[in-house]
Amino acid sequence: MTAISQRRSGAFVRRNGSQFIVIGLLVLLAITGFIVSDRFATVANIMNILEQSVTLALVSLGQTLTILTGGIDLSVGSMISLASVLLSGITNGDANMVAPAIAIVLALGIFVGLLNAAAVVWLRVHPLIVTLGMGAVLQGITLLYTMGPAGKMPLGFDWLAFGRVLGLPVGAVIAVALFLLTAAFLRYARLGRYIYAIGDDAIGAKLMGLPRTKVLLFVYAFSGFMASLTAIFLVSRFGVGQPYTGANFTLTSITPVVVGGTLLAGGRGGVLGTLLGVYLVSLLNNVLNFMDISSHYQLIVQGLIVIIAVSVYVEKKRTL
């Protein structure tokens, strides 16, 4: 009896352990921040953390879904760059062009994602290679379009990045809402369940006749869409799109996902873990700033966190 209940609780911790660890780390960081600076626990600073985390949150939300299927999307960084320059280039200061430009870059993100999925499905090339190649193509197109900052956004467009609804940063509210919606989608939509099934056992999914093509088209299109959405918030923040603005996002978008307990092998994890991962990374950078630790060291810490996270959560698959 005891043995069984122990095994149960063991399974529970195994299943949700990553979340506990991340929450624990979040608390630890918050305490540290509280100790090192009296400016840490202020409304202004918390708003600041929320604002800064928006773009990372959006792009890693899309990334989570591709990773859940056992894939990955390495084209998000270039997609963000391309969408950024197109958005501000097309708008070019004209308030009337904002809506069409947003529609265009969002549609483009979806289209690029569909192309990625099509290559994965029909060329049967690993997503890593497909999206790596796509990333290069998109970066090239971006640089053909402009080598420097392109166009500008009209006044007021920075509302997305700096505005408030109900006293909270607009972007953060949107991001959290999207995370909750996606979590509900993954749990309650059939397509959402199939994302897990395909990541869990791709061959089994095929034998069960689950719609792999449809699922992959959806997740890569979603990832492309989220990359474009990220670009919109970036442009709002900086006022202009730049051709390398997304470069770092390709790899940093993966950090919150794996820190949040989603396995690169697919099938296990979820977007709420990723959201915690996003806030962990943002809080970490914030606290390190208060500790007067330069951004160089922040990189080191981030890398170490990835190493620790993946080697803690990793599942021993070795049978022999």
Binding site: V125, G133, M134, V137, G140
Partner: peptide
Amino acid sequence: QMQIIIKGLVIVIAAA
């Protein structure tokens, strides 16, 4: 810039 674009296409084509 075409270098980068071609590189991207080449890797996917080669893998395929």
